[in-house]
Structure formats: structure tokens, C-alpha cells
Design a protein around this nucleic acid. Structure first.
Lengths: 175, 175
DNA sequence: TCCTCCATGTAAACTGTTACATGATTTG
DNA sequence: CAAATCATGTAACAGTTTACATGGAGGA
């Protein structure tokens, strides 16, 4: 149910078309809340119908620029400040860990070192991306940096854990 | 698409009914792959139809016990060893971070310290749970311990990050 | 003219959540 | 006999993904 809030958040900075929003989802938000074009256009219509957005301008090629309404801002604020539940999240990667005993010890260790490498690659990709981004003083940059740091810490943690887990299995294997 | 693999994984240890599986989803797998009763019964039927499971026994109250077939084991093995993509994951919590500039600095800091507290509570809940579990030598325990350690590291990382981020915002606020 | 980018939408399939509905068996 | 537990299923709805479908505008 957060796609709508991602869209409200982007439109709270400036009015934009569905096409413009897609660029936001493909770049800054791609690691946090990916969305498809189908979803975005569908949700724009729903949000406009609900009065949280309105068409603020029309351009060539049927372009419709949407702006957030004051109801939309209220909803965004409500979402940002509502009490958060302690959410359990799904994880493919961890699910596999539960069933590692159905592999040979060697295969299991291969899986875990693979995980470590994936995390490491993601960490590197983030570091590289961080260097390429032109960080400014604008709000999206300030918040983007916080999210970035989260990504760095998360990938580092995952790599360390996977290496540790592989070693644990390796120990057991010897017995 | 991993519900089916969670079910195959559980049934690869021992045959079970839908009701039995639900206990697995509510306990060991609850933090990794929650599932509802509706899903489980529906998927059992599909898996049986696809030949990955078969009804191995029937009991009182219409109980049907399912066992994994060799096709099912092959599919489980394939899933465990297939190359993993570097998956982007959705995160409500991080999405909010991107839009923190639409709150007052004080509200934003409140959000982040709230995040820290949630992470801390989850960490404590895990530590407490770890003590209560009767860890054995069975495969689920061995792998469960690895997953547990992941949870502990993850919640610790999240708390540290949120405290750091709150401080960052606090610095900016002073300027 | 051709290619790329801009731009919007619809339809089908799948996954997941919540609520509803039913009834047998065991235990206190 | 009442309550808890065992046990299975269906229906409606919400969110996501993939594929399809169309066409205008601008630049080389």
C-alpha cells in the first residue's frame, strides 16, 4: 500500500507526469521501492479520483502533469508519522538457509559464499554509485545520503554474516 | 514464488498435513516466510496436482498427510542451487527516509529514534526467543541458528544506523 | 525518413491477505 | 457436555509483474 505514498512523496517536491515519476522509480527509488509503469499510471488515476492529486497541466502527446493537493499532503504527513508496526519481512535468501541440510555440505558452503559475493558486489556497486552522484544540499540529496549509508551498512553486514555462516558449516563438516 | 519451496523444504524433512505445515510457518519460519492457512491449503493442492507432492496417508477429520515425491526433491534442489539474482528489496522504512524533508526536523528525528527503538525491541525479542528455544542437533536447529544470527546482526545494524541518522539530522538542524 | 524518446494506457496471470464457512475429535 | 484443538476448504479483494498496444514529437 506504499506505492501511493512513494508517488505522493515525489509529487510533494514538484508536479510531474507519470513518465517523470517513472524516472524517479528507476533511479533514486529503484533500490527502495521499485514500481512498474502499469502500476504508476493506474495509481495516478486512482489518486486523482480520490482527490489526493489533480491534473495541473497538459502537454504534447497527451502528457498530463499531476500536482499534489492539500488532502494529498495531509495523507503523506499522516503516513510519515503513523505508528509503525514491527514488521516481519520475507527473505528468499534466509529461507534457503533453513533448508541447506538438503544439500551436500559442499553445495551449502558454495551457496553461502555465493551470498557473500553477491553482498560484496552490491556493496561495491553502491560505493561506485555514491561517487558518481552529484550530492547537493537539496532535500532529496540529504535523505538520499541517509538511505545510502543504510545500504552500505546492510551489504557489509550481509557479507560478514555469510562468511561467518560458511565457516560455521565448514567446522561442522569436519566432524 | 517461494511459498512452494518453503513447503517442499518442510516436507523434505518429514511428511505432514496442511495443519502441521501451518505450525512450521507460525514458529520457525514466521520471521522468514510467513504464510496464511489459505495459501498453504491452496498450494498443497497445486503441488500435488503438479506431482511434486503426494497424499501419503489419510487420518481422522479428513486429515491428509502429504509426502514429497522425487520430482519434488529435484525441484527443491534446483531452487536451492539456482543462480541468485542481486535482488532489490522493498522497504517501507527506507521509503519514508526519502521523504523525511516533508516533516519538521523534530518530527523526522522522532521517526528515526522510533526506528531505532523498533530495531532494538526486535533484537531483544530475538535474544529472548533464542533462550527459550530448545536447540537440538536436528537439521532445522542447525540452520535455524544461522538464520537467528542473521536476525541478531540485522537488528543491531538497523538500530545503529537509525541512531546515526538521527544524529546527522540533528547536526543539520543546528545550522 | 528513420530512430529515439516521450507518453499513456489495458489485460491477464500470479501472490498474498482477510474473512467466511464448516465440521470432527479429544480432553477436562 | 463444553471448550479447545484439529482439520480443510472457498471467496473477495489488493498489490505486483509481464506483456500487449498505440501513437506523437523532435532530432540526425
Amino acid at each position: 500500500m506504499s506505492l501511493r505514498h512513494a508517488m505522493l512523496g515525489l509529487l510533494a517536491n514538484e508536479p510531474a507526469s507519470g513518465y517523470d515519476l517513472m524516472k524517479g522509480f528507476e533511479t533514486s527509488l529503484s533500490n527502495v521501492w521499485p514500481a512498474t509503469q502499469s502500476q504508476v499510471y493506474g495509481e495516478l488515476a486512482k489518486l486523482a479520483k480520490a482527490g489526493l492529486l489533480e491534473v495541473s497541466a497538459e502537454g504534447p502527446r497527451g502528457r498530463k502533469e499531476y500536482a499534489i493537493t492539500s488532502d494529498g499532503r495531509m495523507e503523506l504527513h499522516r503516513w510519515l508519522t503513523e505508528p509503525q508496526p514491527d514488521t516481519p519481512r520475507r527473505s528468499d535468501a534466509l529461507l534457503r538457509v533453513f533448508f541447506l541440510n538438503h544439500l551436500t555440505p559442499l553445495e551449502a558452503i558454495t551457496y553461502l559464499t555465493g551470498e557473500a559475493e553477491r553482498a560484496s558486489r552490491q556493496h561495491e556497486a553502491l560505493t561506485e554509485l555514491e561517487g558518481r552522484i552529484d550530492w547537493g544540499d537539496d532535500p532529496l540529496s540529504v535523505n538520499g545520503r541517509l538511505a545510502f549509508e543504510y545500504g552500505l551498512r546492510f551489504t557489509a553486514m550481509r557479507e560478514e554474516w555469510a562468511r561467518w555462516a560458511a565457516e560455521e558449516l565448514d567446522k561442522t563438516r569436519g566432524e
